[in-house]
Computed example of a mutant assay.
Amino acid sequence: MAELVVGPRLYSCYKCRNVVAHHDDIVSKAFQAKNGRAFLFSHATNIVTGPKEDRHLLTGLHTVADVFCSDCSEVLGWKYERAYEGSQKYKEGKIVLEKFKIVKENW
């Protein structure tokens, strides 16, 4: 009987299937984006970061940059560059990926 080899649980771009994140890097699943739920990741791969801009989000003012798939350039979410509220500092350097823009791989 062949042994089933299970790799890491991954998330890929829904458009081109480029791997963008590992399930183990999820910090929180309780994020809200314009178009529904989103996940906060400690880091992501195969993404390109756009220009920084200040945005008023649900939790206050943040400096963020949109993140794009490095293969197909689809916007997948954003990266927190700076949080102005002390209680939000934990988000700095982390990436939010919108749930409907990513698909599960190896589940």
Rank of each mutant, 00 (worst) to 15 (best):
M1Q: 11
M1W: 09
A2Q: 10
E3H: 15
E3M: 15
L4S: 07
V6G: 06
P8E: 04
Y11G: 01
S12I: 01
C13N: 10
Y14A: 12
Y14Q: 13
C16M: 09
A21N: 12
H22D: 02
V27A: 09
S28W: 15
A30L: 05
Q32L: 12
Q32T: 14
A33K: 06
G36S: 05
G36T: 06
L40Q: 10
F41M: 04
A44H: 13
T45F: 09
T45G: 02
I47A: 01
V48N: 14
T49K: 12
P51S: 14
R55P: 14
H56W: 06
H56P: 00
L57Q: 11
L58F: 08
L58D: 11
H62L: 07
H62T: 02
T63Q: 14
A65Q: 12
F68L: 09
F68D: 07
C69S: 07
S70Q: 13
C72I: 03
E74C: 13
E74Q: 15
E74P: 04
G77S: 07
G77Y: 07
K79P: 02
E81M: 09
E81P: 01
R82Y: 10
A83W: 00
A83S: 03
Y84M: 04
G86H: 04
G86D: 08
G86T: 04
G86R: 03
Q88E: 13
Y90K: 01
Y90M: 01
K91P: 05
E92V: 00
K94M: 13
K94W: 05
I95V: 15
V96L: 12
L97I: 01
E98L: 02
K101H: 14
V103K: 14
E105L: 13
E105R: 14
N106D: 07
N106T: 02
